[in-house]
Amino acid sequence: MRAFEYVSPNSRAQAVSLLGAAWGNTEILAGGTDLLALMKDDVITPKRLVNIKEIKDLHGVSSSAQGLRIGALTTLGDLADYADVRAHYPALAEAVMEVASPQIRNMATIGGNLCQRPRCWYFRNGLGLLPKDESGKELVADGENRYHAILGNEGPAKFVSPSTIVPILIAYGSKIRLEGPRGKRELPLEKFFVIPKTESDREHDLRPNEIVTEVVIPPVPDVKAAHYEIRQKEAFDWPLAVAAVALKMNGSNARSARVVMGYVAPVPWASAEAEQALTGQPVNEATGQRAAEAALKNAKPLNHNAYKVQLARVAVKRAILRAASGGAA
């Protein structure tokens, strides 16, 4: 790892002022479970790390009539332990518990989880977010793309969005709050993720000197939600497909639905097609299957990842059926 300067501000304003206005020279350090790996592998080479863990008001979880406010520095381990999370957002608790290992969950923060960089093996080998060889030829389309995107992959970005928690947060209708030199802003969480078009773009709507301060999940008293992951290995591994579903029911029919997939596209992928296929329908094996097919109707697999279309379909169907049968326990 290269030498770097380490600063540890204790207020948001101070932190923001220590961050550079362009990407490259400074990085925010939260739990470090991703950042340090990127630095050791020389994928990023910041000159200064801004440790935000000393900023008190970025920690903690609180509930109110507006829902649940999760400070960006809440660790995944703590998040899954909150009684309010377990009681009112059980599918979130379950998704969090499936991340990595207890050691990682004890260090990893929710802010870092939303901002973690893609797990694309070209990116992690230092070949760029939109990987190219020295002659400028794109590497993924003709390369080893078995884990890459099957949706939203028309442009040069072929990686998949790495968080397994984000789909369920989006399905619940969460918002993200940010703070930077120009003040605070709030976005629907799905808007935070963008598909980069050039190597200098990032995959988040995040400015180099902005901090994610919190995530807010609205109250969901009438929602049945579930999360389903397809993993080859049981632990300490990246899934092959993730689906999160939130249903509002009217008797046994879905009044409305949110269907969000992970690990299928450079951004978390909310499927309007699947949502439409479910709305007004009874929720059962047949409609679940139909919605799953709708969700993947526009998939365009690369030459080695057609199997992911099937996996994503299964994840969507199973998440729907799980949600309908009461969701995560």
């Binding site: 790996a37 592998d41 797990r119 093996w121 070209y122 992690r124 080998n125 070949l127 060889d133 030829k137 590497l139 003709d142 390369g143 080893e144 080859q232 290995k233 049981e234 632990a235 300490f236 591994d237 990246w238």
Partner: peptide, 30 residues
Amino acid sequence: ALFEEKVMDPGTGRMLNADMQFYRLAGLND
């Protein structure tokens, strides 16, 4: 039987999974 494979990139001639996150080894649960 289930996980291991040295994955080589045709475009660069390099091994793509030369680390413990992409070179899968069975874990306790497997």
